[in-house]
Lab assay of single mutants.
Amino acid sequence: MATGGRRGAAAAPLLVAVAALLLGAAGHLYPGEVCPGMDIRNNLTRLHELENCSVIEGHLQILLMFKTRPEDFRDLSFPKLIMITDYLLLFRVYGLESLKDLFPNLTVIRGSRLFFNYALVIFEMVHLKELGLYNLMNITRGSVRIEKNNELCYLATIDWSRILDSVEDNYIVLNKDDNEECGDICPGTAKGKTNCPATVINGQFVERCWTHSHCQKVCPTICKSHGCTAEGLCCHSECLGNCSQPDDPTKCVACRNFYLDGRCVETCPPPYYHFQDWRCVNFSFCQDLHHKCKNSRRQGCHQYVIHNNKCIPECPSGYTMNSSNLLCTPCLGPCPKVCHLLEGEKTIDSVTSAQELRGCTVINGSLIINIRGGNNLAAELEANLGLIEEISGYLKIRRSYALVSLSFFRKLRLIRGETLEIGNYSFYALDNQNLRQLWDWSKHNLTITQGKLFFHYNPKLCLSEIHKMEEVSGTKGRQERNDIALKTNGDQASCENELLKFSYIRTSFDKI
């Protein structure tokens, strides 16, 4: 039985969820670079991206490699990797027998973001014989899940209580170790020597080791999670996991709180800001991140802002960003909400898709409305799209047979046209069989910064309504002859009103 693990408890099935942008060198404390989270699957090609990484700022997932063999891993080693800020997950990587050479110096898994409450997941690794993470000293947050690894031993010899604050939620089941077939031998045991430290858990006094050649490092209890030197002297209180010299914040392997210019500090002093819960960055760093993602459509890219001495992905609820200094300031009234469309555009074809934009005031991208039916549609669209004030790209209304009016965009005031449909149009209306009105132009103002209007096959939309939009939106004169079809717009509506004058002759039985 794995020490510190839980057996036999019912657990939810383990679901495996399925960018080499360097964020800056980590400095003297770390020998390499800070790398983003990685999802490495199918083959070993991307694994080489770990070569210079000291910190993975995010998670590391290595999974679904069915053609790899043990010899493929023999020359692979990433000794610079010290810390993973989120979680480490391995799933069905064939041929991998140990992690001792792959990650010989991995010391800390912070667990800032977890995989279903777990910071370390080893699942269905069919050839893994031992973990071998002999320098792993601290899992700051989260638990361990090690399950269905039929060859995995050296679990009962690990004292997880020396690595985690609590072992109650560890789930370590259905491994070879369960069948008591392992016969784990710690260093020196074969020669009758006791080389590794022994600890007591559940009444068992057991030597602690990761492999037959690597003991588990056990520091004096007084050192807590700070770690200790090879001689057993406690590291500085700002260290986490390990250090090369005692009581020196510049000799830590990793930091308990924050890293700044080669030393570990309790908090980031001005003019620095907390970033990702582990390091200090200056304003320029946060500003660069903001600008890199301002026009990016890459998933996970955030326009970072500053709030409460932190550089964070977005302002919290009730705050909006001051564009001059990136500071989050309290909103006066309802907060603006910028919604970034991942692929640059979004099609609204149902109430469900409209709900995804609920509360958005600025759309960074283009909207395509293609709704053919739905219950209580006008009210639903207004509830979900009615706060949109600005669209950076274009607005396209296409084959939306259920629409009679666009009044559900009740606050839309600006279409920038930074991206144009077919390279020309910022407003595009095609084949809307029941569209009769755009907006009530006596109450609604709309500016279209650039781009043209396109109207074709809107049989109940009168040309007068379209011409009014040209005047109000500032697009009059931009359109070419064929942009607004004269014969297919309003051709099934009563669009022309003329005053009919009647004269009559009164007659009676005795007068003409």
Rank of each mutant, 00 (worst) to 15 (best):
29 L>M: 08
29 L>A: 12
36 P>N: 04
37 G>I: 04
45 T>E: 15
45 T>S: 05
49 E>F: 10
53 C>P: 00
57 E>L: 05
62 I>Q: 00
65 M>L: 09
67 K>C: 07
67 K>R: 13
67 K>M: 08
68 T>D: 07
68 T>W: 13
69 R>V: 07
74 R>T: 07
77 S>A: 02
81 L>Q: 00
81 L>T: 03
82 I>Q: 07
88 L>S: 01
90 L>N: 00
91 F>N: 15
92 R>L: 15
94 Y>K: 07
98 S>G: 04
103 F>P: 00
104 P>T: 01
104 P>R: 01
105 N>Y: 06
106 L>V: 03
112 S>M: 13
113 R>F: 06
119 A>T: 04
125 M>G: 05
128 L>Q: 05
131 L>G: 01
132 G>P: 01
132 G>D: 04
136 L>K: 00
140 T>D: 13
146 I>Q: 03
146 I>L: 13
147 E>V: 13
147 E>F: 05
154 Y>K: 14
157 T>D: 11
157 T>F: 05
159 D>V: 07
163 I>R: 03
165 D>P: 14
167 V>L: 04
168 E>D: 05
168 E>S: 15
169 D>S: 05
173 V>C: 15
177 D>N: 14
178 D>Q: 13
178 D>W: 13
179 N>A: 10
181 E>H: 02
182 C>K: 14
184 D>V: 13
185 I>P: 14
186 C>Q: 02
186 C>I: 06
187 P>E: 13
189 T>W: 07
189 T>G: 13
190 A>S: 09
192 G>F: 15
193 K>M: 13
194 T>C: 02
194 T>I: 12
195 N>T: 11
195 N>G: 05
195 N>M: 09
197 P>C: 08
204 Q>L: 10
206 V>T: 15
211 T>V: 09
217 K>G: 12
218 V>L: 13
218 V>S: 12
220 P>N: 09
221 T>E: 14
224 K>I: 06
224 K>W: 03
227 G>S: 13
229 T>K: 06
233 L>E: 15
235 C>T: 00
235 C>W: 01
236 H>E: 06
239 C>S: 00
239 C>Q: 01
244 S>F: 14
244 S>T: 03
246 P>T: 02
250 T>I: 05
251 K>M: 15
257 N>L: 03
257 N>Q: 12
258 F>D: 02
259 Y>S: 05
263 R>L: 11
263 R>Y: 07
264 C>P: 01
264 C>T: 00
264 C>E: 00
269 P>H: 13
270 P>M: 04
272 Y>A: 02
273 Y>E: 02
274 H>A: 11
275 F>A: 03
276 Q>T: 12
277 D>R: 11
280 C>H: 00
284 S>L: 08
285 F>L: 10
288 D>A: 11
289 L>R: 11
289 L>I: 15
294 K>A: 11
296 S>Q: 14
298 R>F: 05
300 G>T: 09
304 Y>K: 08
305 V>R: 09
306 I>P: 02
308 N>Q: 10
309 N>P: 03
310 K>Q: 08
310 K>I: 09
315 C>V: 11
316 P>H: 04
324 S>R: 12
325 N>R: 11
326 L>T: 05
330 P>M: 11
331 C>K: 07
333 G>A: 02
334 P>G: 06
336 P>Q: 04
